[in-house]
Amino acid sequence: MGQILASQFVYNWRRNVSAIAGSAIILACVLIVLFGPLVAPQNPYDLTQLNLLDSYKPPAWIEGGDPRFLLGTDGQGRDVLSSILYGTRVSALIGIAAMLMACTIGTVLGLLAGFYGGRLDAFIMRVADVQLSFPSMLIALFLMSAFGTGIDKVLIALTLVGWVVYARTVRGSTLGEIQKEYVQAARVAGLRDAKIIRRHVLPNVLTPLIVIATVQVGTFILIEASLSFLGVGVPITQPSLGLLIKNGFDVLFSGLWWTSVFPGLMIMAMVFGINLFGDFLRDELNPRLK
């Protein structure tokens, strides 16, 4: 049946255009993250490669464009394509790292809350409720203005924003699992709580997290872009896509549109792909829709 499920997954995937499109976009992004710097025409942070004479060149196919700069250049003469290839890496890695941190913390807290119940549960869930009652942007902005900018601060902010959804989901699944007889059987076998949680509860509450984690990477990329756009995100030395948009935004209405529009399109494509694939996963993994 495991094999049937696995092959059914593939079967459904092959019949779902948006799932295939989403997967293709994600695959492209993964390739960019892994190999982007290797194929980039230029290292945009190596000042020796920059030439101010090349500043604000339009994309290559527009009059005045330079074939060396396919998507044009910015005010420092940086190749926009190369900036995007480097920036995508920063954005995606921040999204994935923050997701992993939020997922770990949220899962642990959710397991504890669901398994032990009582005051611990009440405490964790009230903290989660408070967290949910603030807009995530506000929390991130507050943290960033209090602790300053930097990739580590961005990660902390995103983790604080993101753990709640895991904690709630895991707590709910845990409450369901600990009622099941195999958990009782583990007690009768004499297992300690920690072992029961690790060996019996945890593996059975992970499935719904796959969907949440996938979609959250997209959400985090967007939040990070917003933070960077507002100037409280990543430092200027490691520009993410959001920071690229901000940098180009000042000159956007002077007709120099390419410096922010292309990074913007890249974010859009990446998040769109993630969400397409996330929706497919949701339909596949949700037993209630079967």
């Binding site: 007889e181 195999y182 009782q184 059987a185 583990a186 009768v188 060996r199 059975n204």
Partner: peptide, 18 residues
């Protein structure tokens, strides 16, 4: 617990699927 063990009702819920 070495002297006493238990058999459960639900053959589907009583074994950890993983």
């Amino acid at each position: 617990r070495a002297k006493m063990q238990m058999i459960f009702q639900d053959p589907f819920a009583s074994l950890n699927p993983r």
